[in-house]
Simulated scan of single mutants.
Amino acid sequence: MPVRSTARRSLLVTVGALAAVGLTAAGCGSDSLSGGSGSGSSTTSAPAPTGSADPALTAMLPQSVQDSGVLRVGTNAEYAPNEFLEGTTIKGMDIDVMNAVAAKLGVEVEYSNASFDSLLTGVTGNRYDAAISSFTITPERLEQVNMVQYYNAGTQWVVAKGNPEGIDPDNACGQTVSVQTGTTQSDDDLPARQEACTSAGEPEIQVLSFDSQEDATAAVVQGRAKAMLADSPVAAYAVEQTGDQLELAGDVYDSAPYGIVVPKAETDAAQAISTALAEIAEDGSYEAALTPWGGENGAVTEFPVNPAVS
């Protein structure tokens, strides 16, 4: 997929947004936050289920994590169904996957909700032991950190129900399209499409960029944009949660892997997470984390550290 260059993909679900966009949050697996949803720092921990730890994996974690029994994980909870806030509760597919991994590692998870752009520097600066936030694995990111593949996602377009404007994702020149700022769709996909439009003598796509996917979704619901682009699981979830107001357009394309982010020096910890993912795939916990969120189509069978990507 257009590899998420400096970004992720996002849908923030808050109480106010539920009314504005017509979304209703659903699913299982959550952790209450004691901090806010902005630059957030403090959270409550998610206890690992009793009796499921693999001591060999625990021993591969940094000594500070072994001593505290807590894995500090950064996320940007604005990307339903992958990670989002419902009131003061953080939940989502990625959160359920990370909690299942932590159970195998024998630690609790302490989540910090922060801006997406701050997460990589939070990991490299030792603010977090890891980060999970729908990060596409890219060569640029692999220069800074280790990334452990755990999922595969593509890009999909969303339009108003019935596609009254006749939007064709392959010929959207001159159309108004909404997108979350900093995503692959914003930074790679749409610029390439705009260049193709101008090269063909057609008008550019008019891009409405928003800090949150919630606002990008609302722009289509309210008619300010004719279409939007988002990661495939996010697009599908937005359609589901807005009832009969939106529908998917075209096929999923440019699939690419998501990765859990670990500091570059912590190769043993990255391998421990990879092995933990393989173990939860074997015992069914991985499937159980994906299915409630409709994420099973992006499941992977291998969980490599730093897979080759282009």
Results as ranks from 00 to 15, higher is better:
P139Q: 12
P139W: 10
E140W: 08
R141K: 13
L142P: 01
L142W: 01
E143M: 08
Q144A: 13
Q149L: 02
Q149W: 00
N152A: 07
A153E: 11
G154T: 05
G154F: 02
G154Q: 03
T155E: 14
Q156C: 07
Q156E: 11
V158Y: 02
V159K: 02
A160K: 12
K161E: 14
N163V: 14
P164W: 05
E165T: 10
G166N: 13
G166D: 10
G166Y: 05
G166L: 10
D168S: 12
D168V: 10
D168N: 15
P169W: 13
D170W: 04
N171D: 15
C173D: 06
G174Q: 05
Q175L: 11
T176Y: 03
T176H: 02
T176G: 05
S178V: 01
Q180W: 00
Q180S: 13
T181M: 08
G182M: 06
T183H: 03
D187F: 00
D187K: 01
D187Y: 00
D188C: 00
D189A: 12
R193W: 02
R193L: 13
E195L: 11
E195V: 09
E195A: 15
A196H: 02
A196R: 10
S199G: 13
A200G: 11
E202R: 14
P203V: 12
E204S: 13
E204F: 03
I205F: 06
I205L: 05
Q206L: 03
V207A: 02
V207P: 01
L208H: 08
S209K: 12
S209T: 12
F210M: 02
D211C: 01
D211T: 11
D211G: 14
S212V: 07
Q213W: 06
E214Q: 13
E214T: 10
E214A: 15
D215S: 10
D215W: 00
A216Y: 05
A216Q: 04
A219H: 04
V220T: 07
Q222I: 01
G223Q: 06
R224G: 02
A227M: 08
A227N: 10
M228K: 01
M228F: 14
M228D: 05
A230R: 07
S232I: 08
S232V: 09
P233M: 08
V234S: 13
V234G: 08
V234N: 12
A235I: 07
A235K: 06
A236G: 11
A236Y: 07
Y237D: 15
Y237V: 05
E240Q: 14
E240V: 02
E240K: 14
T242N: 07
D244S: 12
D244P: 04
D244Y: 06
Q245H: 10
Q245M: 08
Q245A: 14
L246V: 07
L246A: 05
E247C: 06
A249S: 15
G250H: 08
V252E: 15
Y253T: 15
Y253G: 06
Y253K: 15
D254P: 00
S255H: 08
Y258V: 04
G259E: 09
